[in-house]
Computed example of a mutant assay.
Amino acid sequence: MEKSKVYFTDMRVTLRENLPQKLHRLLKTAGIGNIDFEKRFAAIKIHFGEPGNLAFLRPNYAKVVADTVRELGGKPFLTDCNTLYVGGRKNALDHLDSANENGFSPMTTGCQLIIADGLKGTDEELVPVEGGEYVKEAKIGRAVMDADVVISLSHFKVHEATGIGGALKNIGMGCGSRVGKMEMHSSGKPHVDQSLCVGCGSCQRNCAHSAITIADRKASIDHSKCVGCGRCIGACPRDAVLPASDESNDILNKKIVEYSWAVLHNRPQFHISLVVDVSPNCDCHAENDLPIVPNVGMFASFDPVALDLACARAVNSQPVIPGSLLDQSDRSCGDYFTALHPTTNWKVMIQHGVKMGLGSSDYELIRV
């Protein structure tokens, strides 16, 4: 079987080629032009960055990808789904405001921005997962599934729950609706923070299983009736309905892979990861710490598993930035990601990705 190909270029430039031009050359060399984009909708899955975080990818990189798709005859749009947690991206309006605040707009990126799971994170498509160990039916943002081509543009980083945050994390967790995100993070059911609840009844009106009652202007969820659909989370205007976050990290990684399968199976796809500003936590944080290693470069592949593995190995081969969180961590385990977050094992995601047929751990790294 032929090895997967992962293409790489560093962050060095010349007087004749800047970084956006270099990224464009990487995409063309890696074969993005082999995809039939003619008059087809192309979803470019990106993380717009939580307000306060400055490690997210600059809009300039997204513009290169969108312009390349247009050059090939396609109709690109940038997309992400709403978050499960309370923050600047919990609904489509706040999400677009946050994206605009961080510099993403049609003027800066050359394409429209669409929040894939709609206003409250409930616009989803149910996608059967063949061979899923934990997920039988993924809940994916509808705009992602309506697209003809899927492109992931990921900021590769460390992640406190999954070990790495790369292409699979960007696709699997990122394309899940709010209910889908709850399914990945939780083996339990939502509950109500009574101190925040005002008894407005929005959760009760959105519950199809009569699991919510209101007494003394406080809502309560009967877990014997609750099916864990998570509609109440998106419906609550006070963020008083909270998901359980009790899934093991290994199972979380496997669920993310199975959600990635739902998004990518039998669809034209292409994946790009930038290993820059490698922060020790996710871009969902409203802050970012000092990068743990120097900027490495830009990677592209048709294989998201090989791409994530190549990026992880590249990070592990770098010198540690003095004063960073990694510099202050015990690195005797020989793996930067485990050193920072000892309860994670990012290799589970790679192994399960191979098992699910999303890609290969056997690849050839081609320098551009």
Rank of each mutant, 00 (worst) to 15 (best):
A161N: 14
K189D: 01
K63M: 12
L326K: 01
G357I: 05
T109Q: 04
I212V: 13
S279E: 11
T343C: 02
E130C: 07
D327M: 07
K39A: 10
M182S: 03
T343I: 09
D303S: 00
D123C: 12
A138V: 05
E247K: 11
C203G: 14
R217V: 12
G88W: 03
N295H: 11
G118R: 08
Q269H: 14
A30T: 08
D283F: 02
V257C: 09
I115V: 15
G74I: 09
K5N: 14
K169C: 01
V149S: 08
K39W: 02
R58S: 15
F104R: 04
M349V: 05
N281V: 12
V275I: 15
V179P: 06
E71N: 10
E101R: 14
L274D: 06
P190I: 10
T83E: 00
K181Y: 03
D246S: 11
D146V: 06
L84N: 04
K255T: 03
V64M: 03
N266L: 13
I171Q: 01
D246Q: 01
A312T: 08
V158N: 14
I164K: 03
V192T: 07
V6S: 02
N60L: 14
D97T: 15
G132Q: 13
S260M: 02
P76Q: 08
V348P: 00
E71Q: 06
V276F: 13
S154L: 05
D117C: 07
F270G: 03
A167W: 02
R25N: 13
F56T: 07
M173A: 00
G180W: 06
E38L: 14
I212G: 04
Y134T: 10
G121C: 05
L242T: 12
F37D: 00
H223G: 07
F48Y: 09
Q328D: 15
M107S: 13
V320M: 07
Q328V: 10
V293K: 13
H352N: 07
D250G: 10
L340H: 10
E130Q: 14
V86Y: 08
V368H: 04
D277H: 11
K254P: 03
L264E: 06
A99H: 12
R178H: 00
L26W: 02
S245E: 14
C207M: 13
N206D: 15
L309A: 12
E50R: 02
G297F: 05
A208L: 15
K90G: 08
M349H: 07
E364H: 11
I114A: 06
L274E: 04
F56E: 06
T213S: 15
V127R: 09
D80L: 01
H159T: 05
T108N: 14
G359L: 03
R231P: 04
D308W: 03
G297Y: 03
S317V: 04
F8Q: 05
Y61E: 00
N249T: 13
